[in-house]
Design a protein around this nucleic acid. Sequence first.
DNA 1: TTGTAAGCGTTATCAG
DNA 2: CTGATAACGCTTACAA
Lengths: 349, 349
Amino acid sequence: MNRGAPKLSDVARMAGVSPATASRALSTPGRVRPETRARVDHAARLLGYVPHGAARALASQRSRMIGAVIPTLDNAIFANSVNALQGTLAESGYTLLLGSHAYNPVTELQVTRELIERGADGIVFVGTDHDPQIYRMLATFRTPYVLIWSLDPSGRHPCIGFNNRDAAIRVTRHLLDLGHRRFGVISGLTAHNDRVRERLAGVRDALRARGLELSPQAVVERPYSFASGQQAMRELMGRRPSPTAVVCINDVLAIGAIIECRAAGIDVPGDVSITGFDDMEISAQLAPGLTTMRVPTVELGRAAATYLLDRLAGREVATFTELPVELVVRGSTGSPQLESPPGPQHAVR
Amino acid sequence: MNRGAPKLSDVARMAGVSPATASRALSTPGRVRPETRARVDHAARLLGYVPHGAARALASQRSRMIGAVIPTLDNAIFANSVNALQGTLAESGYTLLLGSHAYNPVTELQVTRELIERGADGIVFVGTDHDPQIYRMLATFRTPYVLIWSLDPSGRHPCIGFNNRDAAIRVTRHLLDLGHRRFGVISGLTAHNDRVRERLAGVRDALRARGLELSPQAVVERPYSFASGQQAMRELMGRRPSPTAVVCINDVLAIGAIIECRAAGIDVPGDVSITGFDDMEISAQLAPGLTTMRVPTVELGRAAATYLLDRLAGREVATFTELPVELVVRGSTGSPQLESPPGPQHAVR
DNA sequence: TTGTAAGCGTTATCAG
DNA sequence: CTGATAACGCTTACAA
């Protein structure tokens, strides 16, 4: 791909120095006389020299590329994080290699292999649920990595995330405090998704602490999509007695749920309360009284980049970072519901 | 980064063949005896061999990586395309290198250089507005590329896109046909963004064809954000006489505009009509009567991947592909407005 | 079909 | 501070 393009030796010749010196002038400017550095820089500029990354990687054993393995970019949540990740990496001259797996563990393994093969100096993963083979590969290739979105309870893997279970507990408690007793949950698919499982567990924990159980039919598990959320909401509202509060495990599902409520003429909140996770800006507009958990997507991306860059530079790094999640109570889902058993309330996330 | 990891020579030794044969067995299975191929495969599997991408790229002059240079991932529109692009590439063993520039042409040039440096075998760009230096670099390095989202009128650059101007014309005509005469436009920033300029020109064209002009104050130019859209809408509705129809150049702005209408108690459509571009699923929920232009984001990503893969494989490729854009008329923004000058109508996109 | 050997364009080591 | 020179791990003529 570099056919005909100027190479380092061309730059060196033009500057009247050896390739070695040219290399140094370009990558470690401090190690050459200012004057020769100027000559080399000038020659490089004149020739439009662009270093050959593969050659450089081969010789230096560093690719200056960081990989990210994510479920999908369709979820705005991950797109935001990836955007921040890429931006932060670029500031340090690193390029992002992107792989997604659509929640398929086999694909994930494959994608990871691919990134390692391309020489990723480090890799970012989402969540803690990964094939043991993945961790084995990372160890074999001594590839630094970090898990984001979740906290690793085992402490075996470096992670930057937040307490998904606790966030769900807080959201649920909020609903309980509003007086709700009949709950429904619109969940994402739990397979290969620790975030969903933790959040679900959090809802259960909070309810149990107040002597309530979540019956199997009170939980609807669906893939992330507006349509799923709509349909799930319809099902839940069809149950008798119908829930007065519904917790949505993800914002996409929440939006679907809200849409369904509007279509069915159900007031949110009022007849129903919704609480949620992730990126709820739009959801909040759909249902102004919405209560949500705001997840630090941008911070996750930035922190992951910083972690890996620091690690690669041999700097000290914290191997366990918990980020705060903010409970955002909008409008007045408040006291009214406390007296009369309110309509359904939904915890969105 | 490959320290301690098995290399091709290890596989070769274990299989009892030369490195050359091992290489062939792995990358061109057809060129070796089935029996030796099996031995090599077995050895590779046993050792957990992962090829060294940089070495391979250096020797073969091909990286099996494709770059994408996009404005941002924060816009769901681009995220969808990138997702499709990455997925299609992965099916053919290609990995995606991602760069974004936040609508900054200097950053874009830099990012492009970075991708070329990393050895991208091909690059996808958004739109036609690019620094001439970018095209020069692409030529120097003989890097295949393709522009998506727009059609290149000059015919100089391969492109896969749709007619942005025509789409805007159709949307505007629709509003005209509904009886609207007083228009407002919420535009994105026109600098370095041919899509916005084309769409804006389309609105002007359609109006002019019916003897109407768009006064300077009827156009509000803002960066993409919900807040911008809200604010712009407020400004437009403050004008006297106020517009009965508003065209939003992008869905993010549209959502903001709709939010503002709801907050102000303005009915959409009814007091106001909205029409839009890009991903209007949510907008449509916020304003059920919304008319929109549906942009083929997934197809754009897929087609771009296919184009580059075909080109790299030496296959025939169409260098100019126009994709259809669908005008989606929802609800009944219809006849009511035809009689009485309707409230403001907004073309969202 | 397989092996030999010469690169691919940089960086790193080691003298000078 | 600078210059030879040997890797880096793989592919690919060319020969056998």
